[in-house]
Computed example of a mutant assay.
Amino acid sequence: MKLDTKMIHGGIVGDKYTGAVSVPIYQVSTYKQDGVGELVAGYEYSRSGNPTRAALEALIADLENGVRGFAFASGMAAISTIVSLFNKGDHIIIGDDVYGGTYRVLHHVFSRFGIEMSLVDTSDVNEVKKAIQENTRAIFLETPTNPLLKVSDISAIADMSKESDLLLIVDNTFMTPYWQNPLDLGADMVVHSATKYLGGHSDVVAGLVAVKDEEWGEKLFFVQNSIGGVLGPQDSWLLMRGIKTLGLRMKQHEQSARRLAEWLETRTDVERVFYPGLKSHAGHELASTQARGYGGMISFDVGSAERADRILKKVQYFTLAESLGAVESLISIPSRMTHASIPPHRRLELGITDGLVRISVGIEDIDDLQADLQQALDAK
């Protein structure tokens, strides 16, 4: 199936009992058994498995070309469950400007259980290689990163991971399986904050994982079932509904983002624009080879916190809010919002300044979005 068809017909479609074209919401906690351990349809308790969630998990496996999918109550529940695969004394290499929540859970939670981490610029393959230690067990990267949109070479890092027997985990939230498939490039696991583009309508919080082989699938299922941070059936249904229009939305997000990025780059009052679709972007060539598109996220530096705040007050169609990837355009200041948990000196080292503005370009008319940004940037 082509991608747009897979969004509609991937995974488990409809209901064999009624002929419904949409998978029903199985709002149930437990299931009748014909005898002890004799399950009617393979389900015994909804923490371990639910038909609605199973349909979603089959869908994300199909979309990411994996062998098994998993649905969680949030993106952070998904990441935390993956990290729970590791043991005390294990070391994980992560990107140096990952989402603040990922940094927070590793630095402040899992560090207490003896799991170590190193922050590395994963866009530099040599830096990743130098960071590998005897106790390194995994590499976790975002590409493009949040919020600086740095691009990492998934294939090269996958080859390096295999040589050192490391697990490669890729956060594919920004690109989605519509534009990029990390498992095809050699990654072992791909994770999504499905709250974002996959849901797409700011009405569900969820996390998804797809794995490349059954061995890791069994290990992840055991931890998912043990910890229990699973997605409920209603949210699973909402997420499947959102995914049906993912292709249409991603095309519009990217078309508008590319135009806005090119326009922002022409403005002398914008110090720097971060968007992989720009030829000036350091990762443009790599992004063009490992992905089919560049996504709908843009960051740009307006020079100061004061000017950034002025822009926030003036915009009309960009909503100041956490999150991204929705039909409505969102705007945020990473240093004080999504990445506030990262120490100030570290943010400055990375280039996450107080004047850095991040926008998630929605599907509104591009002329309205550009005019809105223009009047906000021109405001004195």
Rank of each mutant, 00 (worst) to 15 (best):
I243P: 11
D354A: 02
A73C: 03
G75R: 04
G295S: 08
E285W: 04
N50A: 11
R267W: 00
L320T: 06
I154K: 01
E254Y: 13
R310H: 04
Q252N: 03
V13E: 13
I359E: 11
D153A: 13
F140W: 14
V128Y: 00
L119A: 06
A206G: 07
M1Y: 05
V23M: 14
V211Q: 12
K2R: 14
D165P: 00
R241E: 15
A41F: 12
I366D: 10
G37L: 10
Y178K: 12
Y43Q: 08
Q234D: 04
N126W: 02
H192Q: 11
R358Q: 14
L63V: 03
E214M: 09
Q290C: 05
G11R: 11
N146Q: 06
Y275L: 06
F174G: 00
V273S: 08
G355I: 09
I132D: 02
D165L: 06
G69T: 06
G89L: 07
D165F: 00
A131S: 15
S288K: 15
S84R: 05
P344F: 04
L59M: 09
Q374D: 12
G37H: 09
N65F: 07
S46M: 10
L106S: 06
A206K: 07
Q224R: 15
S161L: 00
L59K: 15
E271K: 15
M160Y: 14
L330Y: 09
K313T: 06
I139Q: 00
Q33N: 08
S202T: 00
I352H: 09
K129A: 13
G200M: 04
V105N: 11
T266Q: 13
D378W: 05
V190M: 10
V204P: 01
Y317L: 10
R241Y: 15
L220A: 08
I12C: 08
G228H: 06
A321P: 01
E262H: 12
I333Y: 01
I169S: 11
R292Y: 05
V151I: 15
A282V: 15
V109C: 02
N181L: 13
R249Y: 06
V315H: 08
Q252H: 03
G10L: 06
L149H: 10
E218W: 13
L373A: 07
V28L: 06
E218L: 12
E134R: 10
D34K: 15
M1F: 05
